[in-house]
Design a protein around this nucleic acid. Structure first.
Lengths: 237, 237
DNA sequence: TCGACGCTTCGATCGCGGACGAACCTTGGG
DNA sequence: CCCAAGGTTCGTCCGCGATCGAAGCGTCGA
């Protein structure tokens, strides 16, 4: 009789081609939606949903619901490491990743996500707020600091009368695959960006188009758009 | 879209309880007969024969026929290492066996990992080698120093004729969740520990039981067993 | 030479789980 | 308010593989 942890559950999870393909796709580190993973595995959404539920129950992946999307990511670095190890044992190398995302570069750059800014600009926004201590990451949930409250007031964002809606909320960006700022603060900031004339919505689309001086002012206030953000070191996906 | 290595095949092999038990039994490093493995897995000889044929075809075990017996052993150290790694992941995500068993504490203290020492003692061994400069950590891979070569020679470990197998290798310990010493040096050290009478294998298990003077000598040579190791300050997990 | 033993092969059974169609729920956008 | 789309649940089908009985094959000991 052997002792120690039971590898059969995990191995059985990895032993199905569909699930293995999904995990390989997640090896890139990006969070992917259920639909994308279904396409990656070559199965229907129903089947993928079943597989993903099993992987989540098995502790190999983490789910994050975002609107009508379910984003999935590997549960941690140990999982990726073990996958690499198994891959090495299998004797071959090379993994394939999907590179999903909007085809429209403008959409990637800056768009509206319900009522707040998304895309490169939205991610840069949250990066800057985190880097300057206006928002803190408390175990995955965002917290508005006193400095952040002062900043919001100066910027012209009204935070009062929010009701039950959270002030700060991390929203997973579907093009950058990292978090941007949602919640009351996110909505208020975008509203002010409109008001200041930095940017405006493109009709019939979700695209947010910055004016040249507006983009300059935005980058002065928050940071460069479309680069490797500062929040890489934070726990925020 | 799956062009990568076939981890599915190997994982599926590990995903069956019978086969997994057989492999765990083989983690002791000794070759076992088909009948012994059948008893270990709790299946009939016919079923075991089928499983063993699959494991052999999958390259995880090697068969050696002697008379009317078929002896099986793990195909190599890398198989044992991958198994240990998977076990560590299983322990991390909480897939514990339903019955821990009374031998569990002894297994955690000192056991065999294929051909080298694992558990508290194995981790302490690597800690001591690192602390005394006999082994160095070069970006996660271990390097035997000249002082280490001298030490190995004095201790009676033969390092020559190793073939392609690495001299030093870090192997993730599933019970301590830190690395212990594998590779030619790890195997040679355990061999010498046996020869010196410091410890011996408990029959039919992976447990390594130290004698009282043997444990004292080991701790003199390498460091205390079962405490916070010395390598906390090093990069090795 | 014979029987016992160890292992393997063959054949049949059967249960688990992967697959998908259909329906349902929620969300986002107009 | 309505519609479209993403995701999940439910129910069903079906194929793979684990399992074991029975038989076959080689080896060992008397």
């Amino acid at each position: 009789m052997t002792t120690g942890p039971d590898i059969t559950r995990i191995a059985a999870l990895l032993g199905d081609a569909g699930r293995a393909n999904m995990l390989q796709a997640l090896m890139g580190g990006q969070a992917l939606t259920a639909g994308e993973l279904a396409r990656e595995a070559g199965v229907t959404p129903q089947t993928a949903s079943s597989h993903l539920a099993q992987l989540e129950a098995g502790g190999l992946i983490a789910r994050r619901c975002q609107g009508r999307h379910s984003y999935f990511a590997l549960a941690g670095a140990e999982v990726a490491e073990a996958l690499e190890h198994l891959t090495a044992l299998a004797g071959r190398v090379g993994h394939l990743r999907t590179r999903p995302g909007p085809r429209d570069p403008e959409m990637r750059r800056a768009r509206v996500c319900y009522d707040h800014l998304a895309g490169d600009a939205g991610v840069a926004l949250l990066d800057a707020l985190l880097a300057r201590g206006r928002v803190e990451d408390r175990d995955g949930s965002l917290l508005l600091t006193e400095a952040g409250q002062a900043f919001a007031r100066d910027f012209g964002v009204v935070l009062e009368g929010a009701g039950r809606r959270p002030l700060c909320k991390a929203c997973l960006d579907w093009s950058v695959r990292r978090s941007h700022m949602a919640g009351v603060l996110g909505a208020g900031l975008l509203s002010r960006i409109y008001d200041l004339g930095w940017a405006r919505r493109v009709e019939k689309t979700r695209i947010v188009r910055f004016t040249a001086p507006g983009l300059h002012a935005f980058e002065q206030a928050f940071g460069p758009v479309g680069r490797e953000g500062l929040s890489r070191s934070t726990g925020i996906i």
